[in-house]
Computed example of a mutant assay.
Amino acid sequence: MLYRVEGIVIRSMDYGEGNKIITLCTENGGKVGVLVRGAKKAKSRHAALTQPFTYGEYVFFRNQGLGTLNQGEIIESHHLLREDIIKAAFASYACELLDRVLQDDETGTFWFKQLKACLGALQEDKDPAIIIHLYEMKILQSTGYAPELQACISCGRERPDEEYFISPGLGGVLCRACKHFDPPAMNITPRALKLLRLFSALDLQRLGNISVREETKAEIKVIMRAFMDQQLALKLKSRHFLDQMEKYGL
């Protein structure tokens, strides 16, 4: 059967001497694997369609399993992301994270729109850390692990922001009276809590310019890392690379 989809390349790998297999996050068909014959050859007319982060229209034959590309057209190459090591690292993390959580048979509309918005924001030079943490929040929400940030996850009571701790293990904020249910629960400043609530309510497609203090960004990074580790427990090569970049001051 012949398919025509709009999709974003979230993974690209060599296959054989001259071919590539790409994984697309599509708007209406979920996650799809497509074989692109001859993509590694210098004069291949399809080579550009296999580049990571490329958003395009793909036409392929598929009975079951892997499809085979017939033709395609680039809508947005996102070449600026591939030319900047920092942007490329964050974009790779966004794509790998989505690849790991999105199952082949899942509808991809929401995921597609969030990834498209994420890559667009990175290309527009918005703060990559803020973009990625907002994107992570959308991932947590869509996988059913959205943190409870309004009331205590244990007793259900709303308290002043100054009285909350944050518990990645239990999945939300804890009041002082319930702190004993998770002794390792982390301190959280009211400023960071408000930012997390903003992440929870805001759609990436509506992200404007957000100015965040460096100390708040550092706090949010620790908290979001803990939530991703506790709730999804994914080991991602791209995140390790981001950590290495930070370690060496890139």
Rank of each mutant, 00 (worst) to 15 (best):
T54D: 07
N209E: 13
I223Q: 09
I75A: 10
Q103G: 09
E219R: 06
P128Y: 05
N19D: 15
Y55C: 02
R225Y: 05
P52E: 09
P184Y: 11
S167I: 12
K247I: 00
I210V: 10
L236Y: 06
C25G: 01
C155H: 10
K113H: 14
L81H: 04
N63G: 10
M224V: 12
A88T: 06
Y135T: 06
Y145E: 12
F112P: 06
Q231L: 08
T109H: 09
P52K: 02
Y58Q: 06
K40T: 07
P147V: 13
V36H: 02
G67N: 08
A146M: 13
E76A: 07
L134H: 14
K126Q: 11
Q51H: 06
F60P: 10
I220F: 04
G30N: 02
S44F: 14
T107G: 06
I153K: 15
I131R: 00
D14M: 05
T50Q: 11
D243A: 00
F90I: 03
G65Y: 03
L196H: 09
S44T: 08
L66G: 07
R4S: 13
F60S: 11
A226G: 06
L81Y: 03
A151Q: 14
E6W: 00
Y15F: 15
H46A: 14
I85N: 03
V59P: 01
L122C: 00
G249E: 07
